[in-house]
Every structure is written in structure tokens, then in C-alpha cells.
Simulated assay, not measured.
Amino acid sequence: MNNKEIRAAISNAKLKYWQVAEALSMSDGAFSRKLRKEFSPEEKKTVLQVIHKLAKEAV
């Protein structure tokens, strides 16, 4: 499966995919489609930063 690290981070943070998509200013469907293929290192870094930010805000 592609993007295991991102999927695991979302799950561990108890977030929904739509929450991450919204924070990235993209639709849920577009984010899901992007998850099918490996993100570039820059994209992955950005997505992980957003996930960590959302997780901190949820506390």
C-alpha cells in the first residue's frame, strides 16, 4: 500500500481523511486519489506537518 506513513499518522492522530484534505485546501476525493500513489518527499513532509498540527489542535 502506498503512503503507509501518512495513513498511519492519520489513524494514530484519530483524524478523518476529510479533515486532512480540508486543511490542505483540497477535496476529500482529490486527497484520496493522491493517496493511491506515493507522495513526493516535499508533499509527504507537508501532509505530515498538517496531520501533526491538527492532532495538537484536537487535544
Rank of each mutant, 00 (worst) to 15 (best):
A58M: 02
K53M: 06
K14L: 14
W18F: 03
S27L: 05
D28N: 05
A23K: 13
K16R: 11
A58N: 02
K4Y: 08
S40H: 06
A9E: 13
L35M: 15
N12Y: 04
A58G: 01
V20Q: 04
K4M: 03
S25H: 09
S11D: 12
F39C: 10
K53W: 02
R7F: 05
A23W: 13
V20C: 09
Y17K: 11
D28F: 01
L54F: 07
K45P: 01
E43P: 10
A58C: 00
A55G: 06
D28R: 06
E42T: 05
R7V: 03
E57C: 02
Y17L: 06
N3Y: 05
R7I: 10
E38Y: 03
I10T: 07
K37Y: 15
R33D: 07
S32A: 11
A9Y: 02
S32L: 11
K14I: 03
K45Y: 08
K56I: 01
R7P: 00
E43Q: 15
N2D: 04
R33K: 05
A13G: 08
A58I: 00
A58S: 02
D28V: 00
V59H: 09
V50F: 03
V20R: 02
V20F: 09
E57T: 05
K34H: 07
I51N: 04
P41W: 07
S27P: 01
F39E: 11
S25G: 04
A23Q: 12
E22K: 13
M1A: 15
S11Q: 12
G29T: 14
W18Q: 02
K37C: 15
L48P: 12
E42Q: 07
S25N: 08
I10R: 10
A8E: 08
I10S: 05
S11A: 13
E5Q: 14
S11W: 02
I6Y: 07
K34I: 02
E43K: 15
Q49I: 06
V47A: 12
L54Y: 04
K16E: 12
A21W: 11
L48D: 10
Q19C: 06
K34D: 04
K16Q: 11
L24D: 10
E42W: 01
A58D: 01
W18L: 00
H52M: 08
S40M: 03
E42G: 04
D28G: 03
K56D: 06
F39W: 10
A55R: 10
E38V: 07
V50R: 04
F39Y: 13
M1E: 14
L54G: 09
H52G: 07
A9I: 01
E5W: 00
N3S: 02
R36Y: 11
N3M: 01
S32M: 06
A55C: 08
L24G: 08
F31K: 03
A55N: 14
M26N: 04
K16I: 01
L54D: 08
L54I: 12
D28Q: 05
E57P: 00
E22V: 00
